[in-house]
Design a binder for these strands. Structure first.
Lengths: 339, 339
DNA sequence: TACGGATGTGTGAACGTGCACACAGTAGGA
DNA sequence: TCCTACTGTGTGCACGTTCACACATCCGTA
């Protein structure tokens, strides 16, 4: 029974002693520098023998660099449940950071208690930068990052407080306009929208795009407002739309989840899709292919958004100054069966 | 234009100087000890004035304590997409750690490249413990944790390599047996199962519970095996079941997503639910209430699982040794409309 | 007066790194 | 011969914190 390492961790001193050199030489084989072949061999042997791993805390203290970037998820209740993209954004960011040999640590902010603790964490020197996925435009965390001038990037919308922080997102207005035009060219005449989350940029912009595409044909009556991007809201919104105008023959749902709910309400009302009514969604999430019929929708490049945000932070870490104002990623239309 | 703090961060020295005391006294007001009222007042004033925040890296180095616990998500592709519970488990763990003034940092392991980096991170002194959510029972990360004797807890199933590490999960066998018995007492005679993920404990155990409940009535013919816990597998599995025995009148789906797919296949085949066929699921995820009819299913206490795992780690951090062997949380049946 | 305890404060050392610097030896060119 | 350049190595210091210790003061009591 040989316990590998009881609790004491090996340090540079230990392997220096084991290899018969000084700490400086050990540091040089780890970080590059002039080292003779035999010294290097002895040190590497010692390292593998004792299973030495550098102490990140000490390194971070000395270097003022932790090789870690925070992924801050604000109000995750809604994010994890409503937004099917948050997971993909995380994976995209992680992949990009990983390639640059950085660690992604994701921090979850649920309550104001969390806010304070995460602020301490960001300030405390454990991360070099932050990617912030926020549903709200004003948040205490943003002020912390701004005051700290911590390299950061926002996902989803421009930060209101500090315009110098870059962001990455999609063109919600243009995408909404494009998919509404798809309904128009398919010959739909009475087109309604189930608009959601009108307290956020994304919600407002999607409605604006819809309005823009319809132009003079826009009818306030045919917009059902619901609070969230979820399935239940879709069912409710569609029922409302049918009640206001039973002749509606096209629907732009502000999210795929809403579109799925709308399909349910239409089935319940005996309408066929896409025969009687054409339905389009937004996100191209897993919802889109779960539905019957499958949804025509706007593809959100979630992974790319994540990796792009990571690049934005990494670039700042290298000392570059990315032009502020944000970066909008293309959102191709995905044509399926629902319209 | 007054920049708040250019880049220099305030240290204990700075606030000691500002308050006219020594660093030791500052440390004492931060960490407790004998401090006079006036000294404390002066120091606290200085702290708020310059916006001092302790440097975690230095503190971690000195204290060998980072007040942070890792949440390690292995192979998140499947986790984030298949398992609707991972988000809730995270939130539960975060809440429990937050209450104990600990920071949760979640690490995503996608590739073998990630494995190495995360191992370095765990070893590097940035975290005091780890919660591991793993779909596979053998993983290099487990060996790292074991060798390091890092306080840890597993979610989902017992770790194969190191039996001393506690885990928290649910009784898949018992739960599957219970919900199958529900179908039996409802009078179903020809009961099939759509079994999934038979390469994992959860999948194997759910099938075992099903078999146990049926006893001598068990018929191999009525088990459709599908690879994943997802919707598409549910559609396919149900079609297969109907083909093998059109007289099937009860179905236990290994997950809610599968059950939802089964409902679709049944609708397609013109069967009514629960009239012709009773369907039950597993998880009590958001799927369960999205379906028409809503699913009777097994509730997985995801938040509690997360918080329980966190407790297990925190207890070890306090020096206690939780009895190994794991903790199984209760899984109440949720009766809805589908059976 | 002298002592012991409680209360309050300052100082030095250490946690484990990386880097600047000093130093030593060898080789080549003026 | 001296100067410079290159290769290779060891030492001291600093990063910001906490802790152990020494010291200082005040009080009550023997």
């Amino acid at each position: 029974m040989s316990r590998p390492q009881p609790q004491k961790r090996a340090t540079v001193h230990d392997i220096a002693a084991a290899a018969g050199v000084s700490r400086g030489t050990v540091s040089r084989v780890l970080n590059g520098g002039y080292v003779s072949a035999e010294a290097r061999a002895a040190i590497e042997a010692a390292i593998t023998e004792v299973g030495y791993v550098p102490n990140n805390a000490a390194r971070a203290l000395k270097m003022r660099r932790s090789q870690a970037v925070a992924f801050v998820a604000l109000e995750p209740h809604s994010l994890f449940l409503d937004d099917p993209n948050i997971g993909s954004i995380m994976l995209g960011a992680n992949a990009a950071l990983s390639l640059a040999d950085h660690q992604m640590v994701s921090l979850v902010v649920e309550s104001s208690r969390d806010t304070e603790r995460v602020a301490r964490y960001l300030t405390g020197g454990f991360v070099d930068g932050a990617i912030v996925v926020s549903a709200r435009t004003r948040d205490p965390i943003i002020k912390v990052i701004s005051d700290l001038s911590l390299p950061a990037a926002f996902v989803g919308h421009p930060p209101e407080l500090d315009q110098t922080i870059p962001y990455v997102g999609i063109d919600n207005v243009g995408s909404a306009r494009a998919i509404t035009e798809h309904l128009l060219t398919a010959g739909r005449r009475r087109i309604g929208m189930i608009a959601a989350a009108l307290d956020r940029d994304s919600g407002i912009d999607r409605l604006a795009g819809f309005r823009g595409a319809l132009g003079s044909r826009f009818d306030e009556e045919l917009v059902a407002e619901v609070p969230h991007y979820d399935y239940g809201s879709g069912v409710k919104g569609m029922r409302e739309l049918l009640e206001r105008d039973p002749g509606v023959d096209g629907v732009f749902a502000a999210s795929d989840a809403i579109a799925a709910g709308a399909l349910e309400a239409l089935r319940e009302a005996g309408r066929s899709v896409p025969g009687d009514v054409g339905v389009v969604g937004f996100d191209d999430s897993t919802w889109a292919v779960r539905c019957q019929p499958q949804l025509t929708t706007v593809h959100q490049p979630a992974k790319e958004i994540g990796s792009c945000a990571a690049q934005l932070v990494l670039r700042q870490l290298r000392g570059e100054h990315p032009e502020p104002g944000g970066q909008l990623l293309p959102t191709p239309l995905v044509l399926r069966d629902s319209a």
